[in-house]
Design a protein around this nucleic acid. Structure first.
Lengths: 338, 338
DNA sequence: GGCATTTGTCGAAACGTTTCGATAGATGGA
DNA sequence: TCCATCTATCGAAACGTTTCGACAAATGCC
């Protein structure tokens, strides 16, 4: 396999000239550069990664630590991983994958052996030991998700409060004056991540700001529970006409079945918006308007911030990604009251 | 960050002594080794990865190319990826993740820049361009799945024929004399991977060997189609009493519903074995006996073969992993005939 | 006690880059 | 024409390891 000396010999120049010609860090004469390009092609030269890492100060590799917790939705998880890789490649970075069982040891290993230039931390939970580790390692890093103690860390996450606010806005704008949020099971709000709370708070706050009635219900996953939660809401006085659903895929489907079972049409009788899912609500029957959690959005930004940390210091921060709204026709004006 | 010179200085030895002490490749005196260990701890020394790669002949990194085709079941896919990483770590290897869009370019890049020592190719399809590329690169590689042209390649896959044979054996051993295989939709047998055919062939061959009646039906995914396929089978003369199902998760569930809907009990009226799924059939109602496709089995072996290629040449081969049978109580003796 | 072998350690070369400083030649200004 | 500046190129050092060959000291054998 050809090395830079071979290229230099064939092109009749010194190796430093080859290096500068390829990196473009110093001006090289037109004719010389052409000869070098020619030699590179002829020899099928590609710089040796190890040599580069050693001489340069960069390895051009990021570590990605991606726990696969049992409550993680696998397709979404995969989408996050792939988004990170894709984003990293835009900056000419490769991604080394660390698994859950090696989370902290692996991070320690790859960072203190200088195998990676930085770390992307996926699916960060409230009390994530990786957060503290990353802080103590002092390595460039970007977390996706916000730990309880985010001090000194660079974090990226969807703006869940704004997302919920956006859902409220769309429903109120359509004319709804009584809204309900169907949330995760109670257990989710007690432990784990904080985003369900942030979504709930955003929902209630914006509803208050818009001066509309709003309720929040935690819904267990079982079909029967979903049905009874829906019944309780719709059978009440002042029943909500606009629903925001923040839950798992199955809950959405059960809910849609239950709505259909009651003979209600969407959006004729009931408007529904799905909140920050990672699955595709446009394939539901009927398709649901949605404020999706888009892996590429957070991942791209996280990689960007990691790259920036390499040359300029980036101030620690929690950066919230703006939510987007996708209309699939599940929101309309409420029926005029009886 | 400390380097080997620092360690040598603190321990009062030369750097080569440090290197040998850490690698164990030459005997080092007891006292010297202790001094070196002490210095390593004191300085929190960890060998620099780039220096190692450059001087040694190994990078201790494998590339993993894992396409995420739309028809891939994401949780299984993720399980394969994680299994590869876990297996690689056993050999002190890290894994660099390449995505679909960079499949061939990425492989070319990381192998000709000598960033990786070898390649693990996941989810290999019949006409997989990565197979030809890997062959032409001449880099140590192990494929999981078997391409049409496996010449010169090291491939690992589940022994689908044996798996189907195992299912037949268990049913026949339980006393069944009329079996049926419910397979994938017809389209799957026409394009894509060849394992559905291998499973089907294994089923029919073993049934013939065991001298029992056996039928094969391709089943579309829609619930109605599943139900009618089941009806057609069970309403026939000489209806099968033992079923083998090779399909997606949804098809299994629909099938179980349909069976229950006909008032049949499992395994009282009907014995069922699920063939080579990646999902968990023990959580079904009722739980199904299964010959699972276990990611860790193939991945471990693939990594092993990749590692072996690094020092001894490994002869090209297609290595089939033995299937395993898991009993969850869905097979019993058939009811005595009428 | 002399010689061959083993054990423990060292120095130096090699791996393949990047990059700093130097230099020769070309260009420009006065 | 002389000096300053700029452009294009080169040589050499540095990055941090591993490993080969050498060698001194310790050990074993007769």
């Amino acid at each position: 396999m050809a090395n830079i000396h071979d290229v230099a010999r064939v092109a009749g120049v010194s190796i430093s000239t080859v290096s500068y010609a390829l990196s473009g860090k110093r001006p090289i004469g037109e004719k010389t550069r052409l000869r070098i390009d020619e030699a590179v092609r002829e020899l099928d030269y590609m710089p040796n990664a190890a040599g580069r890492m050693l001489a340069g100060t960069r390895t051009r590799i990021f570590a990605l630590t991606a726990p696969l917790r049992s409550d993680t939705y696998a397709p979404a998880h995969m989408a996050f991983v792939l988004s990170v890789v894709t984003a990293a490649r835009k900056y000419d970075y490769d991604v080394l994958l660390l698994t859950e069982d090696e989370a902290t040891d692996g991070l320690r290993r790859v960072s203190s052996s200088r195998l990676v230039d930085g770390i992307i931390v996926l699916d960060v939970s409230m009390n994530d030991e990786r957060a503290d580790l990353v802080r103590s390692l002092g390595v460039p890093a970007a977390l996706i998700g916000v730990p309880r103690n985010a001090e000194g860390l660079v974090c990226v996450d969807l703006d869940f409060e704004a997302a919920a606010g956006l859902a409220v806005d769309r429903l109120v704008d359509a004319g709804h004056t009584s809204l309900a949020l169907l949330g995760h099971p109670a257990a989710v709000y007690e432990r784990g991540s904080n985003f369900p709370m942030r979504f709930r708070d955003g929902f209630l706050r914006r509803a208050a700001e818009r001066e509309v009635a709003a309720s929040f219900t935690m819904v267990e996953k079982e079909a029967a529970q979903v049905r009874s939660a829906l019944a309780e809401l719709l059978d009440a006085d002042q029943a909500p006409t606009g629903l925001v659903v923040h839950g798992e895929e199955g809950v959405h489907k059960t809910l849609l079945d239950a709505v259909a079972g009651r003979g209600l049409s969407i959006p004729g009788d009931l408007s529904i918006i799905a909140g920050v899912p990672t699955f595709d609500t446009s394939a539901f029957t009927p398709p649901l308007n949605v404020i999706p959690l888009i892996p590429a959005d957070s991942c791209t930004r996280a990689v960007e911030l990691a790259v920036q940390q390499l040359d300029g210091a980036v101030a620690p921060r929690v950066e919230l990604v703006a939510p987007r709204y996708r209309d699939h026709g599940s929101v309309a004006a409420p029926r005029p009251g009886p």
